[in-house]
Simulated scan of single mutants.
Amino acid sequence: MRFLLGLTRVKELSILLVTIVVGIYFTATSSAFNSIDNYQTIAQYVAPWAIVAAGEVMLLICGEIDLSAGFVFTLAPFVLMLFYVNGAPMVVAVLGAILVSTLIGTVNGLIRTVLTLPSFITTLGMAFLLQGLVLIISNARPVSVPTGHGILEVFGGARWSEFLWALVIVAIMQTLLSATRFGIYTQAAGGNPVAAAESGIRVNRIKVVNFAITSTLAGLAGILQGTRVDSYDPTNGGFTLMFFAVASAVIGGTALLGGSGTVIGALLGALLLGIVFDGFNLTGVSANAFNVVLGAAILVAMILNVSLIVLRKRLGARGLS
């Protein structure tokens, strides 16, 4: 029974098992699934979702959400181009675009905490504002990625660089969440904000920092993705990207009501979605069915998370913890 309790405490276990089962299923039903090229295709789906989800996990844990992250993802490459065409070196252009992304998140956080507007409304308004800016800056047209810059090989140009960025970011963010004081404060801010504030935790500051982190990661992901496909597209990202990131976080075990979550779980959630999306393409299943699977996965994940919480409490009450 102690072993059972230990398993229930591994938040990523259920999503890991489901991901493995789904991978085995598509391996058996499609001969093209197990190939290096197809693994790269899956990685290309997973990387941007996982990077943005790493930030959304932190926000969801502290009881907030960022609906504008998908449009920061869209905007960042065009900000990069603005710096570049106005004479900035490519390194400065990349760093400048990421800094602008950070500032957008900081503004979101300050509006949320200083003006006490709900994050849903704050970031929804910011999303539409950024969408308009993207269309104005780009003239609603995609632009080609500048060539001859080695720095862009690092930021998405090399074959596996985007996915490697995703793995590194997930590792850093999981460490930040589980092994630092900031991570503990983030969980406290979402689990019981009143008690956290009374214990001396600056809840508002924690939230502002997490908004800034989420936008920073979204901007970085947008640059990586656009550079990989060799085009900065004003229709890329948006609400679709944001919802996939949030879905990855929720499927991976992050509570929508705050207080608990796992960045590794979000990566596994993104991997599961990527495998299903890719598997559907390989087996000829209509892409429309993917939304059915996505919706069902979110519902099952939420039900499973609640069930595991109840099971942990029952086993702990029996003196097994």
Score class of each variant (00 low, 15 high):
91 V>Y: 10
100 V>E: 00
109 G>T: 02
88 A>P: 00
89 P>K: 06
74 T>E: 07
78 F>Q: 06
93 A>C: 07
101 S>I: 06
109 G>L: 05
91 V>Q: 14
86 N>W: 12
78 F>W: 06
99 L>P: 02
102 T>S: 14
104 I>W: 03
98 I>H: 00
110 L>D: 09
78 F>T: 11
112 R>S: 12
86 N>S: 12
117 L>V: 15
112 R>F: 03
71 F>W: 14
91 V>K: 12
76 A>F: 01
75 L>E: 08
115 L>M: 14
118 P>C: 02
114 V>R: 09
107 V>A: 12
120 F>H: 05
73 F>A: 06
113 T>P: 01
94 V>L: 15
121 I>C: 09
86 N>K: 14
125 G>N: 06
96 G>W: 10
103 L>A: 07
98 I>Q: 00
82 L>S: 14
71 F>S: 15
122 T>C: 09
119 S>V: 08
85 V>R: 06
75 L>I: 08
85 V>D: 09
103 L>F: 11
110 L>S: 09
71 F>G: 02
79 V>G: 01
115 L>F: 14
82 L>E: 13
92 V>P: 00
96 G>P: 00
100 V>P: 01
89 P>D: 11
111 I>K: 06
111 I>R: 05
74 T>V: 04
74 T>C: 08
88 A>R: 11
116 T>Q: 14
85 V>I: 15
89 P>L: 07
124 L>V: 11
88 A>C: 09
76 A>M: 06
103 L>C: 10
108 N>A: 05
111 I>C: 10
108 N>P: 12
89 P>R: 11
95 L>D: 02
90 M>I: 06
94 V>W: 07
123 T>G: 11
78 F>R: 02
78 F>K: 03
116 T>S: 14
83 F>W: 08
121 I>F: 12
95 L>A: 15
123 T>N: 11
75 L>C: 11
106 T>S: 12
113 T>M: 10
105 G>V: 00
118 P>M: 00
87 G>F: 08
74 T>Y: 05
121 I>N: 08
71 F>T: 08
100 V>A: 01
76 A>I: 01
74 T>R: 03
77 P>S: 11
108 N>M: 04
125 G>A: 05
79 V>R: 00
84 Y>A: 07
72 V>P: 01
80 L>T: 03
120 F>P: 03
81 M>A: 12
124 L>P: 13
80 L>N: 05
117 L>S: 05
84 Y>E: 04
117 L>Q: 05
125 G>V: 14
102 T>P: 01
94 V>N: 04
116 T>D: 14
118 P>E: 02
122 T>V: 15
122 T>L: 03
82 L>I: 15
83 F>A: 01
92 V>C: 09
84 Y>G: 02
79 V>T: 09
114 V>S: 13
71 F>C: 10
108 N>F: 01
81 M>C: 09
114 V>C: 07
97 A>D: 00
117 L>M: 11
116 T>M: 13
112 R>A: 12
78 F>E: 09
102 T>H: 08
72 V>C: 06
101 S>A: 12
109 G>R: 01
93 A>L: 04
76 A>C: 10
108 N>T: 06
87 G>Q: 14
89 P>F: 10
81 M>S: 12
71 F>A: 13
71 F>P: 00
100 V>Y: 04
117 L>F: 13
79 V>C: 03
107 V>I: 15
104 I>Q: 01
93 A>F: 07
101 S>D: 06
